[in-house]
Structure formats: structure tokens, C-alpha cells
Design a protein around this nucleic acid. Structure first.
Length: 589
RNA sequence: GGAGCCGUGGUGUAGUUGGUUAACACGUCGGCCUGUCACGCCGAAGAUCGCGAGUUCGAGUCUCGUCGGUUCCGCCA
């Protein structure tokens, strides 16, 4: 055995080993040089332990070596575990009851002074942290988060493996499809002028695996989308991709909620009550103004249109007349909002597209509101009753088109919920949103497009709406929402050839046109297709929530910036003329 | 594609109404120090204030542009 090879990990050293000779390896986290004795906090991935470098034990030569130690040097130490002297226990670290008296020190690697201190990395400019990502990754926070990610994947795999799912890989070099997100494109050398695309998801392949008879498939799959980024969106990200045969919606949802419950239990020790509540898309929009409601707090939206249709107040009467709605929400205890605060809310509502925001502060002796004088006593009472307004509350009302009013109020609700501290810590509120619209009208292309994708099955009772009223057709689709974040979504797929044809027609193209685009896929369906459906979860988002982070960059070992650059490897980058020549690619300009 | 915020020694920040020596903490380097644990004490080095124009007698500070990071809208399932 090599003389420097470790016998224990730093974070594991405890009173149990007092008196034992051990060898530790790790990085110098901090050094405290007191002259005739040097203390070093030694760090490896398991944690920290204090080592003591004493010239009387080490001898002059070894102590001279110890004096050279600096932050981030990689060392090996032989020594004895000692219980710390009376009154010198450090309660801040797990190994604080003990220390290691070093008898032999080996410097395995010296280190330049790092561009930032590892234990302060959280405050450093993101660009610098990303350039030196391997240093940031040394921080406890990121080490813990990356480990949590591993545990999450492990729990997912063990659950699905136990349920008879097969992990099957699908290709990364595939064919570009015009629908959906922008593709990342890879040129082909062997076929000049032709290109692969990187998958936005393994959607078609997993369905083909069902046709192939694997019945239960999963994959921790890397996906690529060339779209603008956000805190929760990276150009490459990871999905927990699942597909099942001979199942209906219930079975997919039941299996998947059991999986998520298993993960939460294994990784966070959180017990979730099942069944997970379900909301229809319509109800989610009605009550929360969002297709991914955060149900950790109330402040639900309420429709008061019915009470205001005959109002003298033009805004309400006109809204009701033109098929719009008046919706509101109750900010509990918000009556003491200042005029300035309320004006800010109004401005925000307007910037989100609303016409305006009306408000009623319910004070002890009166209703403070710029529009109260335009409303009848009955109308004021109805508004208060519907919104369950009590003295001290602030009622917000908005009039206009249903979608816009709901969405804007939904966003105000979320913002107020955060600002007023209504969202409890360490809560995991799961929610299924079901019965999604099947089709959405796209103003740009002046046609219906698939809300989910073109192979999503409509609800049985809505099939005939495909021709009569496509906008009202609902899908056998489901999204799982955790704390207001869309964790994943899926659907039961169309397996009936005739229905698929009607779907394509509703989308505005003929079977011939569909064949041109998805020929191989549709042909496969003609060779015996089991009923099937599936779902895909955003692994990065899931881990982000479990780790209590605000960005998925924090849960990806080597993430990219908001402009899709990797600052460490400096990608993307130009390639050589020779490479371009081989690919028969000319750059413009 | 659009909007907001940020950019000052290695790091994090301060910098007044535009006024001449750019401040503080951490880190780094040197000295002292035998029980520290955010060690302490003494001393030192280290910045053309992201970059480029402009306004001005004078710009870290004001204006415009640009680059980078970030957040949101559009986009994205």
C-alpha cells in the first residue's frame, strides 16, 4: 500500500477512533499558524477535521514543511486521533470533539492562491465562479447539492427498476422536426449539406419502444433546446423520461406519484399524503390564475362578474356585456397598505397587460376606495361577501378578458404571497393539473397547434369537438406541479389511426403532409400498437426544489450562462477552417 | 427580440452635489506568536474604477454605445 493512502475520511473521524493511528487525505481548508503550533482544517468530500502540526511531534524538517502549507494544498497526513482538551470542543463542526495529531505530513500537490476563497464562493460574481467552476464545486454547498442530485437519481432508478421499468438509451444524433422548440444542429461530414439535430426529448423514440414491446421504459435523458434561457432553463437539461404500455391516465399518474413520493421520502425524509390532489386546468385558472398553481397558500381568485353585470359603474357593466369577467382576490390584513404600495401594484398589473386595478381597503368604519362611490351598497356588500372580506383586508378587483384577468391576478397573487411571507418553508405541495386544452390557437400561423404535442389523445367525450369546436377539446394530459413549479408533464398518446388523422386535420395538415414529416413514426403505428402513455420530469428542477435553490445552475455540475456559454471551457467557439472544409460549410461574410 | 439590475485592488463592498491622496473587510506576502478554530498582533504589496466614445477646466460619479453576468417578458413543454 502506498504510504499516503487514506484509511479514513475527514468528516468521519470521531471519538470512536481516539488513540488510533489513521491516514487522511484532503485539501487545506484553512490554516492557523500560531508559530510553535499550526492548526489546519483538512477537507475532503465528507467534511472537515482539525489536524495539529506540532514541531515536538513532527521534528524540525517536517515542521518546516508544515509551515509551507497554504489554502487548497493537497496533503496526506499520518497521525493519531485525540480527544480535544477540556473546553476546546468546536461545536460548529461535526468532528469538533476530536483532532488529529500529525506524525507525518506529505504534500501531494501545491496550489496557487485561488481566485476566490472556497468558503466564500457563494458571494462571488457568477462569471468568475463559472470560469473556475471546479473550484466553486469544492464548496460545501455545491458538494452537498451534487450529492443530493445523485441521491435523487438513485431513488428514481431504484423505484422504477423495482416496478419493472427498463432503462433504455435513445440516440442523440437524430432528425430535426419543425414543431416545438428550436433544435441544436450537428452537421454531417459523410452527408455534406445534411444535419442531425440533438433531441428536445426522446418523445418519438419512447413511443417506438412501446410499439417494440418493452412496455415499461425509462431513461435519465439529456435533452437540448436552443431557446432563450431562464433561471430554471438550461440549453441542455435532464429529464426523467417514462413511457408505459397498456395503461390509462390513472395508472400513469398513480405510478408516477408513487415514484415522486418515494423520492421525497428517500431524499428528504418528507412524507407526502396521497393521493396527490388534482385540479383541472380550468379550475386552476379559475382559482389561481395559473396552470401551475402554488398551493402552499390561499388568496384564491374569485369571480364576481355575476354580481356586477347591472352596475352603474361603466367598467363593470361593459365588461359583463362584452363577455369579460371581473375577478378579485383578498389580501388579508392588507388594508393598511399605503397608497404608494397600492399604486405600485396597479402599475405592475398594467405592465402585465391589465387595464387597471381596482381596490377596496376595508377599514373599521368605512371602505376606503377610489371607486366605492360609483357602486351601490348591494354591490359593495356582494364583493365583500364573495371575497370573504373582513375589516383589515384589502380587496383587489380587475375587469377584462378572462385569460388576461386570471393570469395577471395569478401573478399578483404569487408576488403578494412571497412578499407577505405566506409561503411556509420546507413544504412540498404536490398537485396534478389535468384536462389540459388539446389545441391552442396560434395567432401567428393562424391555425391550431398542439398544446402538448400532436400525438396527445383527446378526452373520449371531447373527440367530436376536434371538428366542431377545437378550442374546447381537452386532452388526456397531466402535469405534476410542486410548489408552483412545473415538474413534469405527459399524456396518453393517440394510438387509433383514424383519430390521429382527425387530429392532424384539426392541426391544419393532411395525412400526406403528416407523413412527409413523421412518416417512419406513423408507419410504425400500423404494425400493432399497444395503448400507451407517459411523462417526463425535469430532473434539474426537481433537484433544485429539493435543494432549496433558485436556479438549476446550482444543481448542474457544469452549467452554462444565460447566454448559453460555458465560461470554463469557453464554448461555443470557432472551429478550424479544416473542420469547416470537411463539413463543406462556408461561413457567411 | 425587449426591459430591469450589476460591473471599483485577487474577492466582497464603500465612494456625498462631478473636485484632484479611490476607503474598508477578507485574501496575499513578510515579521512575531504553543491551543487556535472567522486565531491574534505589527508591517507591506496590490486599482489606469469592464471596454470605447462624449459632456466638462475636471468623470469611479453624468450621457451614449459596447462587452460580460444576472432577473423577467417574448420564446420554450
Amino acid at each position: 500500500m502506498t504510504e499516503w493512502k487514506r484509511t479514513h475520511h475527514c468528516g468521519d473521524v470521531s471519538k470512536e477512533y481516539v488513540g488510533q493511528a489513521i491516514i487522511l487525505n484532503g485539501w487545506v481548508n484553512r490554516r492557523r499558524d500560531l508559530g510553535q503550533v499550526i492548526f489546519v482544517d483538512l477537507r475532503d468530500r465528507s467534511g472537515l477535521v482539525q489536524i495539529v502540526l506540532d514541531p515536538e511531534v513532527l521534528g524540525p524538517e517536517q515542521f518546516a514543511l508544515a509551515e509551507r502549507l497554504r489554502s487548497e494544498y493537497v496533503i496526506s497526513v499520518q497521525g493519531t486521533v485525540l480527544e480535544r482538551p477540556e473546553g476546546q470542543v468546536n461545536k460548529k463542526i461535526a468532528t469538533g470533539e476530536v483532532e488529529v495529531q500529525v506524525s507525518k505530513l506529505i504534500i501531494l500537490s501545491e496550489a496557487k492562491t485561488p481566485p476566490f476563497q472556497i468558503h466564500q464562493a457563494a458571494d462571488v460574481d457568477e462569471a468568475l465562479r463559472l470560469k473556475y467552476r471546479y473550484l466553486h464545486l469544492r464548496s460545501k454547498e455545491l458538494q452537498d447539492t451534487i450529492a443530493l442530485r445523485h441521491q435523487t437519481v438513485d431513488a428514481v432508478r431504484s423505484y422504477l427498476n423495482g416496478q419493472g421499468f427498463l432503462d433504455i438509451e435513445t440516440p442523440l444524433l437524430i432528425r430535426s422536426t419543425p414543431e416545438g422548440a428550436r433544435d441544436y444542429i450537428v452537421p454531417s461530414r459523410v452527408h455534406p449539406g445534411e444535419f442531425y439535430a440533438l433531441p428536445q426529448s426522446p418523445q418519438l423514440f419512447k413511443q417506438l419502444l412501446m410499439i417494440a414491446g418493452f412496455e415499461r421504459y425509462y431513461q435519465i435523458a439529456r435533452c437540448f433546446r436552443d431557446e432563450d434561457l431562464r433561471a430554471d432553463r438550461q440549453p441542455e437539461f435532464t429529464q426523467i423520461d417514462v413511457e408505459m404500455s397498456f395503461v390509462d391516465r390513472e395508472e400513469v399518474m398513480n405510478t408516477m406519484e408513487a415514484m415522486i413520493v418515494h423520492v421525497l421520502s428517500e431524499v428528504k425524509g418528507v412524507k407526502v399524503e396521497t393521493p396527490i390532489p388534482r385540479l383541472s386546468y380550468q379550475e386552476a385558472m379559475d382559482r389561481f390564475g395559473s396552470d401551475k398553481p402554488d398551493t402552499r397558500f390561499g388568496m384564491e381568485l374569485c369571480d364576481v362578474t355575476a354580481h356586477l353585470g347591472g352596475s352603474e359603474f361603466r367598467v363593470f357593466a361593459d365588461t359583463a356585456k362584452t363577455g369579460g369577467v371581473v375577478k378579485g382576490l383578498n389580501v388579508r390584513g392588507g388594508a393598511d397598505f399605503t397608497r404608494r404600495q397600492i399604486d405600485q401594484l396597479s402599475e405592475q398589473a398594467v405592465s402585465m397587460g391589465a387595464k387597471g386595478l381596482m381596490w377596496f381597503a376595508l377599514e373599521a368604519d368605512k371602505v376606503r376606495s377610489p371607486i366605492a362611490k360609483f357602486l351601490s351598497e348591494e354591490e359593495l356588500i356582494a364583493i365583500q361577501r364573495e371575497l370573504a372580506g373582513e375589516v383589515g383586508d384589502l380587496l383587489l378587483l380587475m375587469a377584462g378578458e378572462y385569460d388576461l384577468v386570471s393570469e395577471v391576478l395569478g401573478r399578483l397573487r404569487l408576488q403578494l404571497g412571497k412578499e407577505l411571507g405566506l409561503i411556509g418553508e420546507n413544504r412540498y405541495n404536490l398537485l396534478w393539473v389535468v384536462d389540459w386544452p388539446l389545441l391552442v390557437y396560434d395567432e401567428d400561423s393562424e391555425r391550431f397547434v398542439a398544446a402538448h404535442h400532436p400525438f396527445t389523445a383527446p378526452l373520449d367525450e371531447d373527440i367530436d369537438l376536434l371538428e366542431s369546436d377545437p378550442a374546447r377539446a381537452r386532452a388526456k394530459a397531466y402535469d405534476l406541479v410542486l410548489n408552483g413549479v412545473e415538474l413534469g408533464g405527459g399524456s396518453i398518446r393517440i394510438t387509433d389511426r383514424n383519430l390521429q388523422e382527425r387530429m392532424f386535420r384539426a392541426l391544419g395538415f393532411t395525412m400526406e403532409e403528416a407523413r412527409a414529416q413523421f412518416g417512419y413514426f406513423l408507419e410504425a403505428f400500423e404494425y400493432g400498437t399497444p395503448p400507451h402513455g407517459g411523462i417526463a420530469f425535469g430532473l434539474d428542477r426537481l433537484v433544485m426544489l429539493l435543494a432549496n435553490r433558485n436556479s438549476i445552475r446550482d444543481v448542474i455540475a457544469f452549467p452554462k450562462t444565460v447566454s448559453a456559454s460555458d465560461l470554463m471551457i469557453e464554448a461555443p467557439a470557432q472551429v478550424s477552417q479544416q473542420q469547416l472544409d470537411e463539413l463543406k460549410i462556408n461561413l457567411r461574410r
